[in-house]
């Protein structure tokens, strides 16, 4: 089945442009043709890749008992490619730094008083926290893990922010910053401590690997949740008394 992915569908006049002049239409037509050719080329390349290709699933499965968890994705994330995850948590710290440097969190002066939203938040937030805790624990042997749990926690945080429950200045000062840096911080400290304990950096000794991974994942879950919710808040916290 030879299909050209997406190329022909998109050469439609953009409904936003009410009167595209001929130059612009020609440009869009040529762009569409060029992208269609590229898409066809990519489609040809993808279809000529070898079809049964095991990749790295065999080496991952062979060393799975020594990695401390039995979910291969968690093993890859937190053990085999732990350094990548450490750097990724660092990238996740850079985003709120950028957003905070651009402005202040726009909090509505009068909070929403929608009773349905309020009750929904009261019902859902505890359940979301429970689900996040379960996903964190289940990540060792089932689908789950730090990123999934952290994103569910972030959803709980976004729900709280939407229904008017903004954290007060007691949390927005030091505890917020500690929460943002807890994930990469614990990860880094664990890696360096392992280096001083006789191994290489981030080389977990197999008897303690499961516990170390759980510790790192717990800190990462909290950090990811707070980071994503802080990104939704949209700016640096306003220190000082609110209205």
């Amino acid at each position: 089945m030879a299909r050209e992915p997406g190329g022909e569908k998109i050469v439609n006049p953009n409904p936003m442009m009410s009167n595209g002049n001929n130059c612009q239409r020609l440009f869009r037509l040529l762009l569409g043709l060029l992208l269609a050719v590229l898409a066809a080329g990519l489609g040809y390349v993808l279809s000529s890749l070898p079809s049964p290709a095991p990749g790295l699933s065999k080496p991952v499965a062979e060393h799975l008992e020594a990695s401390g968890v039995s979910n291969p994705v968690t093993a890859v994330l937190l053990n085999y490619r732990a350094y990548d995850t450490l750097l990724e948590l660092g990238v996740l710290l850079l985003a709120p730094l950028g957003v905070w440097s651009l402005g202040v969190a726009a909090r509505h002066r009068e909070p929403l008083v929608d009773p349905v939203l309020d009750m929904l938040a009261r019902l859902l937030v505890p359940m979301l926290i429970l689900v996040a805790g379960y996903l964190l624990w289940a990540g060792a042997h089932a689908p789950g893990g730090a990123f999934q749990a952290g994103s569910v926690l972030a959803a709980a945080g976004v729900l709280l922010l939407l229904s008017g429950w903004w954290p007060g200045p007691a949390f927005s000062g030091l505890p917020l910053r500690v929460s943002l840096t807890a994930g990469p911080g614990v990860f880094l400290v664990a890696g360096v401590a392992l280096m001083f304990a006789g191994g290489r950096m981030l080389e977990y000794p197999p008897p303690f690997a499961g516990a170390l991974i759980l510790l790192i994942e717990a800190a990462a879950t909290w950090s990811i949740g707070i980071t994503l919710a802080a990104l939704f808040a949209g700016g640096r916290p306003v220190a000082g008394p609110h209205r």
Partner: peptide, 19 residues
């Protein structure tokens, strides 16, 4: 890929849309 499905449902379906 159930792990990715969990992350996508929470982030792609919830967080990105809310942002």
């Amino acid at each position: 890929a159930p792990d990715i499905a969990l992350a996508e449902a929470a982030i792609g379906g919830g967080l990105t849309g809310a942002l």
